[in-house]
């Protein structure tokens, strides 16, 4: 695993996103360092969720560049948005999490399963059967 760039956990430059004729994100650039808490404020429909969805790659931005911990997750080539290659992207995606507005818990999972699924998936790697490992996540 590549060394974390801790001074610059997230860096984006020139993010653009439109829905049809409606240009929502116009050239957004920002950076997030370690231990920083950033709030994005704005009226309803101003693009807060769209920005977060672009950053978490649930939505494909129309342009710009995006780095997580110094690794390039997205860039623009000849006017088209390109994501990093799949294995790399999978690793990059494990660097961040997202808490949804309406939680989106999995109703068919138990409470325990809902809590441990994220850290378990992100770091358990090959040791998928280890109950103790799951337990240790809980104790933390």
């Amino acid at each position: 695993m590549a060394q974390y760039n801790t001074t610059e956990l997230l860096k984006v430059t020139g993010i653009k996103k439109s829905f049809g004729d409606n240009e929502v994100l116009k050239d957004i650039s920002m950076r997030v360092g370690e231990s920083e808490v950033i709030s994005i404020l704005g009226p309803s429909g101003s693009g807060k969720s769209t920005l977060l969805r672009c950053l978490t790659m649930l939505e494909k931005a129309d342009g710009g560049e995006m780095y997580y911990c110094g690794e390039r997750a997205m860039y623009t080539e000849n006017g088209r948005t390109v994501f990093a290659p799949k294995p790399e992207l999978k690793r990059i995606k494990s660097y961040f999490g997202l808490v949804f507005q309406n939680f989106n818990l999995f109703p068919h999972f138990s409470v325990l399963q809902n809590i441990i699924d994220a850290p378990y998936r992100c770091s358990a790697g090959t040791d998928r059967r280890s109950k103790r490992k799951r337990g240790s996540f809980l104790r933390r």
Binding site: L58, F100, N104, H108, A118, R121
Partner: peptide, 27 residues
């Protein structure tokens, strides 16, 4: 099955096939 369920699964690193069979299908 709400779209958000699949988005949450994606954030957690499920592949599309995994998301369907572990999250979408049981529901």
């Amino acid at each position: 099955v709400p779209r958000g369920q699949y988005e949450a699964a994606e954030i957690l690193g499920y592949s599309r096939v995994q998301a369907f069979f572990r999250i979408g299908f049981p529901q």
